[in-house]
Design a protein around this nucleic acid. Structure first.
Lengths: 214, 214
DNA sequence: AACATATGTTAGTGGCGCTAACTTTGACAA
DNA sequence: TTGTCAAAGTTAGCGCCACTAACATATGTT
C-alpha cells in the first residue's frame, strides 16, 4: 500500500472529520487507551501512542494540551462507558429492588477488573482531574445512578441526606474491592470466591430491610 | 565549608554506618519518602532524591537495583509503620470489642490521609511489588491485626473462613474510603462529615451482634 | 603496607515531554 | 480558478530523566 493510497483511504473513511487526514484525535485516544491497558497508566508514553497512530511526536499537541490531557480524555470516556453499563444492568432488575443496587456494584467491579488501566485513570492520578468539569460531571452522573436506586429501595421520592449516608459505605466497599482486586492484594479464588454473593450480603446488611409500601 | 571538612563531618556523624560517608541508603529512602509526599509517586525522580541527599545521580544504584526498588523500600517502611499504629490503637480498646475493630479502620484511613503518597505506593503501582516477599509479608501482618480482632469479637479461638469472609467487606470499605478521600472524589465536609461514625455504624451492621460468651 | 571490596564520581546513552519554526492541506471568498 | 488563511501536520532541538560503564577512593583485613 503506497503513501498516496493510504492518504486517500483515510480521507474517504473519515469524511466527517476535521482537516488534514482524518480524526487523529480519536485515533490517539484509542491508542492511548490501548497502551494504558497494556503497559499501565504510568508506563504510558506519548511517543508510543504516536508510533501506534503513525504520526510524529509533535502531532498530539495540536489536539491536546499535554500528556495529562490525553489521559484525561481516556478517563472521561471510561467514566461515560461505565455509566452506560450501570444503567443497562440496573434496568434489567426490578425497580426498587436490592438486586438493582447490587447490579450497579457488580458493574463497577467488573469494569475495574476488565479495564484496570482506564479505571485507575478514572479515579487515581488526581493531578488536575478533579478540577476538570467534564470528568467531574461524568463521575457525578455515575454516582447519580447509584443514588437513584438506593432512594428507590428506601422508597424515598428524592435523594436526601439519608440516601447519601447509606450509599456512601456501599460505594466505598465496591471501590475498595475494585482496587484490591486490580492491585492483586486479594486472591479471589482462595479467600472469597464469590464476590457477588459477598456484595449482596453486605449491601443488604448496610441498607437494612426495605421499608413497607405505604 | 570545604570538601574535606564535609567528608570528615559525615564520618563523625554517622560512625555506626557502613562504609564511606554514612548511611546513604537511609538518607535516600528518607528523601524518597519526602519527595513522594510532596510531588506524588509518579512525579518523583531519582535525580531529585540525589540532589536532596547531596550525592551524584549514580550513587543510588549501589544500594537499589532501580527506581522501583527505591519506591519499594518506602512502601515497605510505610506498611510497617501503619501496622505499628494499628496495634497501638487496637491495644487501647477492650479486647473483643467492636471499638477495637473500628480503631484499626480509623488508623488505616488516617494513615492514607496523612501520607497519601506512601499509601499509594503501598497498594498501587503493582509493577513487581506483589512478587516481593518483604512487602507481601508486611501487608499480611497488617491484615493479621484486623483478622485477630475480628476473631476476638466473634469469640473465635482461631481465624477461620467465617472470620475471613466477614473481615473482607470491612477491609474493602476502609480501603475504598481511603482512596476516595485522597483522590478527592468525596468532599468530607459536605457529604459525610463524620467518617468514624459511618465506620462504626457500618462495621456493626456488617459484623452483626457479638455472640454471647459461652 | 598492600590488597580486595564496598561505595562513591564522571561522562555518556537513549528515551521522553514539550516547543519553535517550518510545511502542507483544505475551505472559502474574490 | 485561484489566492489567502488557518488548521494540522512535520523536523529539529532542548532539557530532564533512568540507567550504565569506567574510573576513583576509602576502609577493614591481613
Amino acid at each position: 500500500m503506497s503513501g498516496l493510497e493510504e492518504t486517500k483511504e483515510k480521507q474517504e473513511v473519515n469524511r466527517k472529520s476535521s482537516y488534514h487526514h482524518g480524526d487523529l484525535r480519536h485515533q490517539l485516544v484509542e491508542a492511548t487507551r490501548q497502551l494504558v491497558e497494556e503497559k499501565g497508566p504510568d508506563k504510558f508514553s506519548v511517543s508510543e501512542a504516536c508510533r501506534a497512530a503513525g504520526v510524529s511526536t509533535a502531532a498530539p499537541y495540536r489536539h491536546f494540551t499535554d500528556k495529562q490531557d490525553m489521559l484525561l480524555a481516556v478517563a472521561i470516556d471510561g467514566m461515560q462507558r461505565m455509566r452506560e453499563r450501570m444503567t443497562e444492568a440496573s434496568g434489567k432488575q426490578d425497580h426498587g429492588s436490592l438486586e438493582r443496587v447490587v447490579a450497579i456494584g457488580i458493574v463497577y467491579i467488573d469494569f475495574a477488573v476488565r479495564e484496570p488501566g482506564v479505571f485507575r485513570l478514572m479515579f487515581g492520578l488526581t493531578e488536575e482531574h478533579d478540577d476538570n468539569p467534564e470528568i467531574k460531571a461524568a463521575g457525578e452522573k455515575c454516582h447519580g445512578v447509584l443514588l437513584a436506586d438506593v432512594a428507590a429501595y428506601l422508597r424515598k421520592p428524592m435523594v436526601d441526606a439519608e440516601v447519601l449516608n447509606l450509599s456512601f459505605p456501599l460505594w466505598t466497599m465496591v471501590h475498595g474491592t475494585s482496587f484490591l482486586l486490580i492491585d492483586r492484594k486479594v486472591k479471589v479464588m482462595e479467600l472469597e470466591p464469590d464476590i457477588p454473593a459477598m456484595l449482596r450480603r453486605s449491601t443488604e446488611r448496610l441498607l437494612g430491610p426495605r421499608p413497607l409500601a405505604p
